[in-house]
Design a protein around this nucleic acid. Sequence first.
DNA 1: GACAATGTTGATCTAGTTAGTCGGGAATAT
DNA 2: ATATTCCCGACTAACTAGATCAACATTGTC
Lengths: 161, 161
Amino acid sequence: MRVSASLDYALRAMVELAAASPDGRHVKADEIAARQAIPTRFLAQLLAELRRADLVCSGRGYAGGYWLAVPAADITVADIARVIDGPLADVHGTSPELFGPPGVAAPTRELWIAVRAALRSVMEQDTIADLAAGSLPPAVAAMLDDPDAWTRRGSERDGAQ
Amino acid sequence: MRVSASLDYALRAMVELAAASPDGRHVKADEIAARQAIPTRFLAQLLAELRRADLVCSGRGYAGGYWLAVPAADITVADIARVIDGPLADVHGTSPELFGPPGVAAPTRELWIAVRAALRSVMEQDTIADLAAGSLPPAVAAMLDDPDAWTRRGSERDGAQ
DNA sequence: GACAATGTTGATCTAGTTAGTCGGGAATAT
DNA sequence: ATATTCCCGACTAACTAGATCAACATTGTC
């Protein structure tokens, strides 16, 4: 799973908007770019995509800027990922359930569907309101309890020995 | 999550080898390529990578071909993915735990770690022995019980309304 | 109404990755 | 020997990611 720069930037921008939303503040693109260290012009493109997807609204002029089109608690990470990166999971071009590997490899299809389900279980639970508040939903937080989740798996394919 | 052609091919090839492994059969690259509809030359590259990673062995000549270097039950999908595609999860270049988003977006780090944990929970559980036998491990199979797992999430960001 | 601050759009650019192909070489069994 | 098979590196064509730019549209304030 490769999280693209676009998705990372877009998500962080949305969290900024979520943090400003209780006051109904409008946040300018430059402001977000500065606070999150995102290339300004590039961010503008991402915000335009989010606007076309009706996740944010924008206004020009002196009081312009961006704000959420929907309550922060209704926008999940998956929503943003789908706008920016397309479907959560695809198996080199086709969606997992349309994928039909031949012969003895047929069950790999179920594998990819399970992978997608696993991704959804995190990305569809977590909203930008959660992120802005710094408190992940219980089901997601539970995955972080295992200290193992915080460590890197090297390329140790000999760990058992 | 984009599953690359390389990973799909490599996994399917490994399942073919796992299916042949109880008899100790050697399987030729051409044979795998034909059965799984994979471009021959391309597959050869992937198999070479898997050999360098000590997941498979190879032999040349009339009795040549490929076979597993390790029991099929000891090779997980994650092992293969790491050889072919690198780390399971990275946030545009760095691993999730080294990633430090600024300000109010800081909790996105925990999000990506949870995503990685979710991926591991499927990919590190499922072995190519499971796949060759067509029976996923219980924890993975459980994710498929929800009929929702089999349906596609369109870009319906208005489902609730 | 003019002006300046801001967002919008589309074109463009570069570098890297992905998905392949190709040719020749080296090992192995008959 | 020779047919068979794997091994390795180079090569390419298409696409994507990441980023930049110029020109235009809109809005609030003076």
